[in-house]
Design a protein around this nucleic acid. Structure first.
Lengths: 160, 160
DNA sequence: ATAACTGCAAAACATTTGCATACAG
DNA sequence: CTGTATGCAAATGTTTTGCAGTTAT
C-alpha cells in the first residue's frame, strides 16, 4: 500500500537521478513529473490511467513519453510491471514495499496483496534443479472473493 | 511434455464432444481439426503459430475460428492459456498433464516446467486469510539459464 | 552545440467484431 | 429448415515507432 511521504519521495527521486546520470540520460521535467504522479498512486494503474491523471494535473506529456519513462523506471527498479491476464499491463511503485504477490477476484477484478516465505524456498529449489539464476517471480492467485457487494458474482451452481 | 498417443486423443476428442453437446454447440470439422493440431504440439504455442501450422497442413480455418475454438477448449479445460510477460498469450494442451508452473529464461525465452507442492499450501492459506475461493494460480520464475548455447547471455558484469 | 528527448500521428501487433454465407443438427 | 459457426476484413485497444522540432547538459 504505497503511502509515500515526502522524505521517502526525495530518496526515490535521487535514485532516479543517479540512475539517469549513470546512463547519461537526461533528467527532463516530464520524467520527474511522471515519477511524482506514479508515487502518488495508492494502487495499481495502467499506462493510460497514468497518462490521464497527468493530463488532469495539467502535466502535458505524451503517451510515448509515459511508456518510455515507465520502462526507465522499471530498469531502475522504482516501478514493477504486472500482466494480470488482461493484455494491458499494470504497474505499481516499487520502492520500499516488500516484494509481494497478488490475489485477483475474477468477478470484480479487485487486487489483494500477500507475502509468503515459502515462495523464496521454491525459487531457490527450482534454481538449483534447473541450474538457473532466478531473478524474479510472479505468483498470481485467481478466484472469487466472497464480499457481498462483489459484482458479477456467479449464481450458485444448480447441480454441482 | 505432451506426447499424446492415439488412445489418449480419442478420450480428449470425446471430452470435447460431450462439452459441445452439453452446451448445444456444434461439432464442426474446424473445431476438431484445431483440437487435433493442438494435441500434436510438444510445446507451448501462440494463436498465430497454431493458425500457421493449420495452414501448412492444408486445414483452412480463419484466425477468428482459431481464437474462438481456443476459448472453447479453455472452458472445457483441454487447453491452458498463459501470459508470460509478452502481450501475446501462449497456450498448451492440458489433458493428462499435471498442473505445473513455469521457469523462463529471459535470454533465450526457453520454457521449463516444474511442480512444487508448497504452492498448494500457499493457495489454501491465502484463500483462508482473504476469504476467497481460489480457482487457479500462475507462478512464473524469470531468470537466466546457464546453458552454454543460450543466446543473448549477458556479459560478465565488469564491476559490481 | 549537439545528441537525446519530446509530441504527434502513423504503424504495429494481437485479438475481437460485424456481417454475409455456409452448414450441423 | 434454422440458427449457429465460419471467413473475411474492418475495428479495437495497447504499445511502439519515425520524424521534425525542442531542450538538457
Amino acid at each position: 500500500m504505497p503511502i509515500t511521504n515526502q522524505i521517502q519521495f526525495e530518496e526515490v527521486r535521487d535514485r532516479f537521478g543517479s540512475f539517469l546520470r549513470e546512463r547519461q540520460l537526461r533528467q527532463t521535467p516530464e520524467r520527474i513529473s511522471i515519477l511524482e504522479e506514479i508515487y502518488k498512486a495508492t494502487d495499481h494503474f495502467d499506462a493510460d490511467e497514468l497518462f490521464l491523471k497527468l493530463q488532469a494535473n495539467d502535466v502535458r506529456v505524451s503517451r510515448a513519453t509515459v511508456y518510455n519513462t515507465l520502462d526507465l523506471l522499471i530498469d531502475c527498479k522504482l516501478v514493477r510491471r504486472h500482466q494480470f491476464g488482461d493484455k494491458q499491463a499494470k504497474y505499481e511503485p516499487a520502492h520500499a514495499y516488500a516484494q509481494h504477490d497478488h490475489l485477483i477476484c475474477e468477478d470484480c477484478n479487485q487486487l489483494f496483496e500477500f507475502c509468503d516465505p515459502r515462495i523464496q524456498g521454491i525459487q531457490e529449489m527450482v534454481a538449483e534443479i534447473f541450474q538457473f539464476d532466478v531473478i524474479r517471480h510472479s505468483l498470481n492467485l485467481y478466484g472469487h472473493c466472497r464480499r457481498e457487494n462483489c459484482p458479477n458474482k456467479p449464481a450458485e451452481e444448480p447441480n454441482g
